[in-house]
Design a binder for these strands. Structure first.
Lengths: 210, 210
DNA sequence: GCTTGAATCATACATTCGTTTAAAATATCC
DNA sequence: GGATATTTTAAACGAATGTATGATTCAAGC
C-alpha cells in the first residue's frame, strides 16, 4: 500500500534543496535550480511547502530537531546510567558531537550534505535564524554547558563560556568544511571522513575543558 | 591635496557593502541596499567596481591581505628576535590571532563588521572562494602550522592537522559570532568584546597544542 | 468504470535583480 | 575662467526571481 507517488516529488525537493543549501547557502539557490535537480516542476515547491522560506525552515528543522533530541537523550542516559559516580567526561563530549558527525537513530538520508548544512546554522543569515537557534539549539547548548561544567575543573563563568563557544565553533567549522579537508590539509585527511573527525574532535574537546 | 570628493562614494560603498555582506552574506544583499546605505547612486557600484562580484572580491581582499601580511610579519619578527632559543608558544598563537581580533597597523576602518566578514570567509559560497582561500589564506595557514608544529609536542601528522583545523574553526566561529555573544551566553559575555575574545582564544589555542 | 481528491504540469504574472545608457554635475588643470 | 576629465545622476533595459493560475494527469475508493 501507499508507496505513494504523491510525496515522491516532495521528498526529492527536500533532498535536492538540502544539498544546494549546504553548498551555496539559502540565498544563493533559486527554486528553479532546486526543482531542476529534483526532477520536479517549478510550482511543486509552492504547492508542497508554500514558499521558499518555509522550505528552508523545514529542511533545517528536519535535521536539527532529531539531532538535538539524540544528544539530550544520550546525555540523559549517560547521567542516569552510572548512579552517583561521575560520568566519564569523554562520554559527554561524545554525546554532544556524535549525532552531528554520524547520524544516530534517525537517519532519513543524513549525509555529507546534511552535515554541511548543520555546520552552517550559526552563520547562515535567515529571517528565522534567531528563532531557530533560540528554540532548537539554545536549550541543548545550555544543557550540555551545565553538564560539562559540572564534570570539569572549575573556572570563572566567563572563561568557561568562552571556552564552550570555541569548542562549539570548532565543531561547526569542522562540519561545514569536512567536504574539503583533503585540499586544505595537503592530502593528509580524506574528504567527508566523519569517523576520523569525530574521533579527533572528542579528544580535542576533552582536552579543551581539562 | 586631493581630498577628492571623487572617491568618497567609492569608499562609502565599500564600507556599506562590507557591513551588509557581513550581516547577510554576499548573495543576500542587493546593490540597491548597498547604494542606499552608502547614500550613493545605484550605478556607482558598476562604475567604480565593474560588477557585484568584483566588489565582493575587493572587500574581502582589502581585509585578508593586510591581515595575513601582519600575521606573517609578526611571526617572522618573533622567530628572528630570539635567536636560537625557542619562541614562546603563546606568542605564536598571538601572532596568528591578534590581527584578526584587533586590527594592527593597517586599520582603514577595521571594525566589528570587518571581523564578522573575515569570520565568514571559509563558509561564504562565492565563485572566487577557492582562489581567495588558496592564494591568500593557505600560505599563511601552512606557514603557521609549521611554526606551531615545530614548537609543540609532536603528534602524528593527521592528528596535528585535525587539531589545527579545530583551532582555526574556533577562531573563525568566534569572529563570526562575536556580535551576538551576549544573547548566546545569557549575558555573561559582552557583544563585540574583541579583547576578551583574543585573550581567551590565546589561552585556548595554547592548550589545544600542548 | 467512474468519481473524487491530490499531485503534476506548462505557462504566465508582477517584482526585483544586476547592468547599461546618456545627460547633468562636479572636480581638475592650464 | 574656460577646457577637460571624472564622477554622479535619473531612467530604463533585459533577464531572472518567487509566486499564482488553471488545465491535465494520476492514484485510490466505491
Amino acid at each position: 500500500m501507499h508507496i505513494r507517488q504523491a510525496d515522491r516529488a516532495k521528498n526529492r525537493i527536500l533532498s535536492a534543496a538540502e544539498a544546494l543549501f549546504a553548498e551555496k547557502g539559502v540565498a544563493g539557490v533559486t527554486l528553479r535550480q532546486i526543482t531542476a535537480n529534483a526532477h520536479a516542476n517549478l510550482a511543486a515547491v509552492n504547492y508542497h511547502y508554500f514558499d521558499k522560506e518555509r522550505l528552508a525552515w523545514e529542511i533545517f528543522l528536519r535535521r536539527i530537531r532529531p539531532l538535538n533530541a539524540a544528544r539530550l537523550e544520550a546525555l540523559a542516559k549517560l547521567e542516569a546510567g552510572c548512579g552517583d559516580q561521575p560520568v566519564a567526561f569523554s562520554a559527554i563530549i561524545d554525546a554532544f558531537a556524535r549525532p552531528l558527525f554520524i547520524c544516530g537513530s534517525d537517519p532519513d538520508g543524513y549525509n555529507a550534505h546534511s552535515r554541511r548544512l548543520v555546520g552552517r546554522i550559526f552563520t547562515e543569515p535567515l529571517p528565522f535564524a534567531p528563532e531557530l537557534l533560540g528554540t532548537e539549539m539554545q536549550p541543548t547548548m545550555t544543557r550540555f554547558a551545565q553538564a560539562i561544567r559540572r564534570h570539569a575543573p572549575k573556572s570563572s563563568p566567563a572563561d568557561f563560556v568562552w571556552r564552550f563557544s570555541f569548542v562549539v565553533g570548532a565543531m561547526h567549522h569542522a562540519l561545514a568544511t569536512l567536504h574539503d579537508m583533503q585540499a586544505r590539509t595537503n592530502g593528509i585527511c580524506r574528504n567527508n571522513d566523519a569517523e576520523a573527525a569525530l574521533r579527533n574532535f572528542i579528544a580535542f574537546g576533552v582536552q579543551a575543558f581539562t
